[in-house]
Design a binder for these strands. Structure first.
Lengths: 352, 352
DNA sequence: TTGAAAGCGCTAACAG
DNA sequence: CTGTTAGCGCTTTCAA
């Protein structure tokens, strides 16, 4: 038999439990919600009745009166307006970067112990962005955790304008009254510069991230500044797009123009991995001939050959903090927005 | 000013719109839900009122009466009972495999045009599994899309026993009255075997997936069977765990025991990539000295050096089909469970 | 400490 | 074609 019993229609309600326990709905509600001032004996009776009936509170009914969905949205946002095909590519592409998996893990790590689960949304088109706003306005979620992939992302502004609770990963390009968590990217890049120089690099180059993304700009600035302060005022730069492929291409360009380079700082691990591949294909040993430092300490850093020396961005902790900030904001809508900036640290492996 | 206006308390209701339009709640409800039989003039008046008031239907209220959450759960399930630390590792580890990103993309691709969004849940401990069941029983989601990482996963059984709508990715180890989508793994592995032999391999070996996972077992069986039929009754096997690292280790073992090998079939791309790394480190050229075929056609296949010849598993389409089957099941609970098996195909790149 | 009663915002008969 | 009327299942004053 592959026919299932129609369980849903038989779902017991508070009323059923109340009848079974010989008390009122209100009393059952109280013990279910752990409110004191209920006679221990009755409390036990209710608990038995709950077990006997297999009662589970109906979330919609509860939300209707509490005005809380007990759900938050995790939205991966982009800019622009992609075609439907590009949309799907966006969704798979996003997870090709281990970064988002870490964000997810951090968010779930915080939410789950609190019996909450994130609703996953992508917002790379104006229609999708409108869907996100409407989702929140419907009360389907109490707030949003937003991870933008572009600086000109209009979503934070839309959310702020609608007065909806949200927290961003990374400070937005233009000031918006929304809390965010971020990393001291410049400090991290400086760490990379210092390490490269300390191990004796004479001709450093860098594969920068996209310069229309704050993190990309800041990492480059931090690297250049530290280098410049230490006698390397103009380090060759090739811009990549935070992908493995773009990192490989950038490395090839750099190699062509500066064959004598002996150290490279890639603005993320994926590009560092691409750089390592190209370096090897050009017969350069890493780190013997060329030292490579990445950024993020994502899963590819350890998997890369050789394992990548990199700047650690504590994504999971940052994501958890984001969730915490959001919850705080949902509970206390009046409070000032507060942001948290994490400090990176260098993780030395074999590539430099 | 960083204080936001308290929008939520002022959310307009159907009543407000009705008053503004000079009609009844029911009429407003009708036009909002696109039900015919409403005078065009009134329809317009209502639409204007909706726009004027900025009305958005309250999801909880609607769910309460329709008994539909319009939400589905996407659960990544495991077996066993991990510690809290392992739990977080599970969550990040899951997304380290591009497979899950593709599943997510496929699911979202189907759901989004229907204004639905998945709630992401991990279920690798008994407590987490209980949370999933309770989440569904609460009516927080209308059904579940389950992707198991282990064969002994008890979740499908629990879901089936509770009579909750669900669809699985991959056929469960023991029969459970739940629909599933799956791939003809054996056929795919046979494709790989044929290709290896066709290009002249004389001493093939294989890096199998974990043998406690059906897909792992089936891919090995399909490969062996096809090989055996073509004169290679006992191909050397090393078992891996579907991770890059395990693939590298398996390759090293195989290389040590069978230095003359000239072709390897890895049961997934990640392991194939690990194999390529080890092969290169041992001075073997791919594909000149050793041909390598992977499985999945995940994002790493194209990124690998050299690009991987692999067996394509149309994960996105399978995931979308899963969502479709679930929706069907939610709408027609009485119907028989139906499953769909997809056919793999070979994607030839450079590694073989 | 407990119960009665009033909704939360919406949909869905059922009349008209 | 439109309005009236019941609730959906739950929380929460307010009395008792």
């Amino acid at each position: 038999m592959s026919r299932e019993s129609a369980a849903p229609s038989a779902m017991p309600t508070l009323e059923d439990v109340a009848r079974a326990a010989g008390v009122s709905r209100a009393t059952v509600s109280r013990v279910v919600n752990g409110i004191r001032n209920v006679d221990p004996a009755i409390q036990q009776a209710v608990r038995d009745a709950v077990a006997a009936t297999g009662y589970t509170p109906n979330r919609a009914a509860r939300s209707l009166v509490t005005r809380r969905a007990e759900t938050i949205a995790l939205v991966v946002s982009g800019a622009g307006d992609a075609s439907e095909e590009e949309q799907n590519a966006f969704a798979s592409g996003v997870f090709a970067d281990p970064f988002f998996g870490r964000v997810t893990a951090g968010v779930v790590g915080y939410l789950r112990p609190r019996s909450m689960h994130p609703v996953l949304m992508f917002a790379e088109t104006s229609a999708a962005r409108a869907q996100v706003v409407s989702y929140l306005r419907q009360g389907s979620a109490d707030g949003a955790l937003i991870v933008s992939t572009h600086a000109e992302d209009p979503l934070p502004g839309m959310i702020a304008a609608a007065g909806l609770p949200a927290v961003l990963f990374a400070r937005p390009a233009e000031a918006v009254p929304i809390s965010y968590v971020d990393l001291a990217h410049q400090d991290g890049a400086a760490l990379a510069a210092d390490h490269l120089l300390a191990r004796g690099c004479r001709r450093p180059v860098t594969i920068a991230g996209p310069q229309d993304v704050p993190a990309g700009r800041q990492r480059l600035a931090g690297f250049q500044e530290s280098m410049s302060r230490q006698g390397h005022p103009s380090v060759p730069v090739a811009e990549g797009g935070f992908t493995l492929h773009s990192g490989a291409e950038a490395m090839a360009r750099l190699l062509a123009e500066h064959p004598d380079l002996d150290g490279v700082f890639a603005a993320n691990d994926l590009m560092a991995q691409g750089a390592c591949q190209v370096l090897r294909e050009h017969g350069r040993q890493v780190p013997a001939d060329v030292a490579v430092v990445g950024f993020d300490d994502s899963s590819v850093a350890a998997a890369c050959r050789p394992p990548l020396t990199t700047v650690r961005q504590p994504v999971e902790e940052m994501a958890a903090e984001m969730a915490r900030l959001l919850q705080e904001r949902i509970e206390h809508p009046g409070r000032e927005v507060t942001s948290v900036v994490f400090q990176p640290r260098l993780v030395v492996r074999e590539s430099a």
